[in-house]
Amino acid sequence: MSAFPSLNRRHWIAGTAAALAWPAAHADGAWPAKPVRLLVPFAPGGTSEIVARSVAAELTKQTGQNVYVENKPGGAGVVAMVEAAKAAPDGHTLILGHVGTLAVNPYMLANQPYDVNRDFLPVTLLAKVPNVFVIHPDVPAKNFKEFVAYVKANPGRLNYGSAGNASAGHLAMEYLKLVTGMFITHIPYRGTGPQLTDLLAGRTQASSAGMPALGAHIRAGKLRAIAVGTQQRIPALPDVPTVAEMGYPDFETSQWYGLLTPAGTPPDVVRKIQQESFKALKSNAVTERFATDNAVGGGGPSAEFAAFIRREQQIWSDIVKRAQIRAD
């Protein structure tokens, strides 16, 4: 039996009551009426928080209400997802969804206390961020091919860290292990910040994350970038090859982040959040920050994000099965 109680009946009752109580004054999608909480399912210091805080700051300016980020790590994102699913469906609690919580957990975790496709409404995709593969400078490998060869010659001797089970970095590295045949041990942390602390100290030897978290360390020579997960090289690292270039032509993985609300949120409110998010993503502050981090902004309608999630679920359900990804 799951350690979490089922949310379906309780959430349906709460959502129905909230919808019946929704004031007529809000029928035009007047949002927000009070401060908005944006839950982030990982600890501070990672790409997810950077994306969330960049957008939240602009939403605060635009709406006149405080849109604040609350980091709530734990359980491969399940802790935050449970809290979001239980929240009133009025648009004042949002959650930052990503590849792990939306496309991998349904196939990696047994007995989730919610259904990601039924208990949440996709609002909009915020950003896609390239995955970068890095190693500690003490690893005797100068490039991707040398790293793969070294790991294969020393199976199980190296460790890689991630922001946690089902984090984007965990998935990217497990996908890389699948296609290359490497054996390197996964060490899950409670966020990108904590795992980078150990990587920089040499207690782990490799990782995958986004440029927002890794860029400064790469430029300082504290980490060595050996590959990127996108099909094309990225402007910030023009000399770093893609995994596809290294003999794995179908390999592609990136981090992506989007907003969701609890199921039952009125369509007018969902539409208003999407419109305000699109405006925030087009602001100078966000576009400049995203350009620095090689992130691609989104902002499209809810239906577009929902279709994107379905496609990602199809892709990752197969990868989870083939790579036998488990919640360590």
Rank of each mutant, 00 (worst) to 15 (best):
P194C: 07
G181M: 08
Q195L: 14
M173T: 02
Y175G: 02
L158G: 00
Q195S: 14
L176E: 02
M182W: 00
L178I: 06
G161L: 03
N159S: 09
S208H: 03
H217M: 06
G202L: 11
N159I: 02
R190I: 05
A172Y: 02
K177C: 07
L223S: 12
G202S: 12
A213Q: 08
I184M: 15
S162W: 05
T192Y: 02
Y160R: 07
A206T: 06
L199E: 12
L158W: 06
A216M: 10
L178F: 12
I184K: 01
I187M: 12
H170F: 03
A206S: 13
Q195I: 05
P188L: 04
N165D: 14
G164V: 08
K222M: 09
K177T: 03
G210N: 13
G221C: 12
G156C: 06
G215A: 14
E174P: 00
H186T: 04
R190N: 13
S162Y: 02
M182S: 03
R203T: 11
A209M: 10
A168R: 00
T180H: 00
G169Y: 02
A172L: 03
P212V: 04
A201I: 08
L176T: 07
Y160M: 04
T204N: 14
Y160Q: 08
G164Q: 04
F183A: 11
M182A: 03
K222T: 05
Y160A: 06
L214F: 07
P155R: 01
E174V: 04
A201W: 09
P188C: 09
K177V: 00
H170I: 10
R219E: 14
A168E: 10
R157L: 07
G164S: 08
P194G: 13
P212T: 04
S208D: 10
D198Q: 13
F183C: 01
H217I: 10
A216H: 14
V179S: 02
M173F: 07
L158M: 13
A172K: 00
A172I: 05
Y160L: 05
T197W: 01
G193R: 11
L171Q: 07
A206L: 10
G181N: 05
V179K: 01
L178E: 01
A209I: 02
H217F: 15
K222F: 02
R190M: 10
S208M: 11
L158I: 05
P212I: 05
Y175F: 14
H186Y: 04
